Computed example of a mutant assay.
Amino acid sequence: MTDKLLNHRAEGPTSAPPLLLGPSLGTSSALWDKVAPELSITHRVVRWDLPGHGGSAADLIGAGATVGDLARLVLALADSLGIERFAYAGVSLGGAVGLHLAVHHPERVDSLAVICSSAHFNGAKPWEERAALVRRVGLAGLAENANARWFTPGFTVPELVRDHRDADPAAYAACCDALAAFDLRERLPEISSPTLLIAGREDPATPPAHLREIADAVPGAALVEIPGASHLAPAQCPEAVLTALRAHFDGGAKRGMEVRREVLGDAHVDRAQARQTPFTARFQDFISRYAWGEIWTDPTLTRRERSMITLTALVAHGHYDELAMHVRAARRNGLTPEEIGAVLLQTAVYCGVPAANSAFAAAQRVLAEETEEEG
C-alpha cells in the first residue's frame, strides 16, 4: 500500500456541486467520456481510475482487497480535493463502491446513482477463479472476450477494450477479490441518500433483477431500465444515462418533472417517457429542465395565467394536437370551460377566425370527453 492518490480527471466549475464518477472493472475514466462533459455543465465532475487501471498506480491495493479499501481510496481523493459531501455515480464495481459509501459513510454522500451493478456479484467462486486465472496468464484472453460481457452484439468501444488489455493483472485480480467478498444486501435498508438504480435490459453481468433488488430494499429508491443497453450503459447509451442522471442529480429537473406531471397528468407523461429513445432522450430532458423546471415554476405568473397564455400561443401557431393536451392542462389548473371559451374567442380577434374555429373544435372535443368521463 502507498499514500498515492487515485488518478482522476476533474471537469466543471470548482464552485459547482461535486459529483464523483466511478468506473467498472477493466475500464478507465474513459467509460464516462460521452456523459461527463455534459454533467460538468452543472457539476464539478471528478472521474477516477481503479488501481492498476488508466493512470492509477497498481500498488494502491493488493491481494485480498475489499470494496471498502476502494471506498477509502475514493474518500482520500475527495479529501485531497477539499470535497466534504458529494453526489456519486458508479458502474458495476464503481457502483458497489457507491453502495459501500452510502452505507458506511452516509455523511459524505448527498445522492447516489448505481449503474449496471449489484449488492452482490453472484457469489465468490467466479471471481476467485477469475482472479486466479489473471494472476496465472494475464489479461489478454479476458480482453478478447470483453465485448461479449460489456456490449450487445455489433457494438464496441475500442478505447475501453484497450484499457482492459492494458490494466495491471495484479491490481485487476485484487479488484476481483473485492467483488468476490462483496455482499451488502442486508445493509441496503440503511441507505438514506436519495438513490437511483439504472439497469441495462440486455446486461448479462448484472441483469435488471439485481438493480431491482436494490431498489426494493433502499427506502425511496427509483429504478430506470434502459432498452438496448448492456453492462457498460454510459458508453453504449449515453443519452439515456445522461437523462436519468440529470433528473436524479439536478433538483431543477426533478422539480420540472413534478410540475410536468401536475399540469399534464401522469398518463400523458408516462406515455411520453415510454416513447423515449436514445435519439429523443436529450429533448425530453430539455423539456423537463427548461420548460417545466424553470418557466412553469416561475412564481411571477400563476398556473392559470400560464395556461391562458399557452392556449393562445398554440392557437396562433396552429398546434392543435398540443392545444388539446393543454386544454386538459388548463382544466387541471383551474380554468372553467367558460374561461377556456373566452380565451379562444379572444384568439379569434388576434389570431384569426379560422385558427379560432379549429381551436374551438379541438377544445370542444376535449371538454366533451371530460364530461363523458365524469358521467
Score class of each variant (00 low, 15 high):
K125C: 03
K125G: 12
P126I: 00
P126L: 01
P126G: 04
W127R: 03
W127L: 09
W127Q: 07
E129P: 07
E129Y: 00
R130H: 06
A131M: 01
A132V: 06
L133K: 15
L133S: 14
L133E: 13
L133A: 15
L133Q: 13
V134K: 01
V137P: 09
V137R: 14
V137C: 12
A140G: 12
G141F: 10
G141L: 12
L142V: 01
A143K: 10
A143E: 02
E144V: 08
E144H: 11
N147Q: 02
N147D: 15
A148I: 00
R149V: 00
R149W: 08
W150T: 08
F151E: 03
F151W: 07
T152I: 14
P153M: 08
G154I: 05
F155V: 11
F155C: 05
T156D: 14
T156Y: 01
L160P: 00
V161E: 12
R162I: 09
D163K: 09
D163P: 12
D163Y: 04
D163Q: 09
R165N: 11
D166Y: 01
D166Q: 11
A167E: 02
A170M: 13
A170P: 01
A171I: 00
A171G: 13
A171E: 03
Y172P: 01
Y172V: 03
A173V: 01
A173P: 08
A173M: 03
C175R: 07
C176L: 09
C176D: 02
C176G: 08
D177L: 05
D177N: 05
D177I: 07
L179P: 09
L179Y: 01
A180Q: 07
A181F: 01
F182Q: 01
F182P: 02
D183W: 00
D183Y: 03
D183Q: 12
L184H: 05
L184N: 04
R185L: 10
R185D: 08
E186T: 14
E186M: 14
R187E: 15
I191P: 12
P194S: 15
T195M: 12
T195F: 11
L196M: 12
L196Y: 08
L197H: 10
I198H: 06
I198K: 08
G200M: 04
R201F: 10
E202A: 15
E202G: 11
E202P: 07
D203L: 15
D203P: 10
D203Q: 11
